[in-house]
Design a protein around this nucleic acid. Sequence first.
DNA 1: AGGGTATACTTACGCCGTAAGAATCATCAA
DNA 2: TTGATGATTCTTACGGCGTAAGTATACCCT
Lengths: 204, 204
Amino acid sequence: MTARRTRGHSVGLTREAVLRAALALADREGLKALSMRRLGAELDVEAMTIYHHVPNKDALLDGLVEQLVASIAPPVFETPWQEGMRDYAQSLRAALLAHPNLVPLIASRPAITAQNLQALETALESLRSAGLAPADALDVIYAVTGFVVGQVVTASEGDPVDQLAPLDLSEFPLLAEAAKGPRDAEARFVFALDALVSGLGSRR
Amino acid sequence: MTARRTRGHSVGLTREAVLRAALALADREGLKALSMRRLGAELDVEAMTIYHHVPNKDALLDGLVEQLVASIAPPVFETPWQEGMRDYAQSLRAALLAHPNLVPLIASRPAITAQNLQALETALESLRSAGLAPADALDVIYAVTGFVVGQVVTASEGDPVDQLAPLDLSEFPLLAEAAKGPRDAEARFVFALDALVSGLGSRR
DNA sequence: AGGGTATACTTACGCCGTAAGAATCATCAA
DNA sequence: TTGATGATTCTTACGGCGTAAGTATACCCT
């Protein structure tokens, strides 16, 4: 009854379609669910068909992080550059939090592609007009990028404070007291980001 | 000829021995090589035997990160606390760099155990005698820990500057200029760490 | 009309994590 | 001494994985 496709009939698969479906699947069901067979099913195609658009699974995963990194708006800096740097950090964090299941991927594969290098170069230009020498600018970008990744990674493992509930709080009085505050992940991030950026500013 | 063991003969396996062998294998051949069968071979035991000392593979991986986190010397803070915080960051970084293959693990699983919470509580005590209120102290520890993880994670993906070689440098003049400096990963880390810690200090 | 090329499918191999159960050993009570 | 009990290990098997190799079909250009 159903009009089953046969061999040779193109279904119009493209690398972009594959990556989009992979991203959707990973977002929806997690990285472990993202297998070639499962992704094939999602695309209504046999697993091996995907290999016509992506050389292997690692390349597919690389494609996912490349897409995610590319989705970040290229930062623009004015004088002083601190505010632009905070904006950059926030949008990087937002991009990561938009796809929490991909965070472990980001943390384990390089995201250096020609396009991303171009964005980096543009940022360096922008920072130079804001008064930062290229070497210093690179250090600053590097510091902030790593910082954001770290904050997101450690926070996405679950806030330590949240894990206190099932434990005996009385054994950890200071922790219990510290956890009383209304601080959430966002506030903590802003607090640390402000500290880092202001520290970077006063140092160079 | 060889004295082959048979069923029932205990080989004296313990959870600790399993974790040690797993760590050694992951260090030597990477996370992908760390399969239950392969680990069994390493211990001269069938794969299923391992399940008597560890409920499943995820628990084994959790054990690895728990061990790694526990290997960090509990930080001690005096007045002012900034120097102790830098020491803590350095020893955390050293612990991570000592097992680079585990970094993706750290980045994807919680490391909250009773022992680690105890270390955290101790650190909070120490920070309070150094003049920091518990809530602020927790924020600071949280900021620095995430920062270190992020620096290690992004740096262990390979320095972007190192990846420039095969590319056309003339397209990215500022990047090329910035890469000329003698900055290595260590120097970059210290630079960013100093900025963060001093920023944290001047803020509270 | 016919051959080349792109696309998709099929089959198969060697891995993986682990559920279920059988075999052997050490210990101890009767 | 014997026999039951529990601890420890090995064996077998299942479903899933990534992907190499080969096959079939459809479209396009001459």
